[in-house]
Amino acid sequence: MNTKTVNHKAWWLVAPVVVLVAFNAVIPLMTVVNYSVQETFGENVFFFEGVKWFEQILRSPRFHESLQRSLLFTAIVLAIEVPLGVAIALTMPRKGPWVSVCLVLMAMPLLIPWNVVGAMWNILALPDIGLLGHTLNAIGIDYNFTRQPLSAWATLIAMDVWHWTSLVVLLAYAGLSAIPDAYYQAAKIDGASRWAVFRYIQLPKMKRVLTIAILLRFMDSFMIYTEAIVVTGGGPGNSTTVLSIDLVKVALGQFDLGPAAAMSLIYFLIILLLSWIFYTVMTKDEQS
């Protein structure tokens, strides 16, 4: 494609970006690292504590429970959203007036502020007066998301599926649109079945797009905060307290700077590690 010339003066072009991002990333990160290895008794009195906070967090059952909840949530949500998104993309019209309508309507959940998403589902799920809550109870399902952990989980998952599946749909749709007609024509001529077309043409050609979709969904669902806290508040009890909710509770609620900082770093590292693993596994084939 374009061969790049070596030019170190290009740093001037990149400088503003580096300044702005580093300001927001490096300084806070340094703060976090700083706190994670110190203990404070308030008013700028700090004692170096080494890895004490890290040990405490890594041994704390509360941390592990939150972590497990996050992992479980992410796993369920990925398992639903990716196949569903792909299925919808496959069945959407490729040409004609309905295409724009479909895309616009499907994109709507993506542009709603996350707290409003949470509020919407909260209102929707209210057992007596919410559309979902009332209907479920009316047909005999005992549903109350403020009191039953299972209902709370179901609501949380339904909300995330409602909120984010469209992202997978849009990405998958873009990937599918890029497949030239000739492939479908050749498959027709070869007598391939619908399933064979999917398996040998569509899926391989969507691989890059799907990698991005899965990676984005993994990262974002693992980091979820605002929607979750607005809809269930982490409850009932702490049954839906995922990692980020717990972290904010500890940091801003309890103002335990040390443990909060240590937890933050562990959290960040977990994401980096898992993302890297995902990415490597999914792009493995491209190396050949």
Binding site: P180, A182, Q185, A186, K188, I189, D190, G191, I201, P204
Partner: peptide, 17 residues
């Protein structure tokens, strides 16, 4: 339809699985 006509077609760019 094409698969009932028993034809083969080679396109402008290679179409392989």
């Amino acid at each position: 339809p094409p698969d009932a006509r028993n034809i083969a077609q080679v396109f402008q760019f290679p179409v392989v699985y």
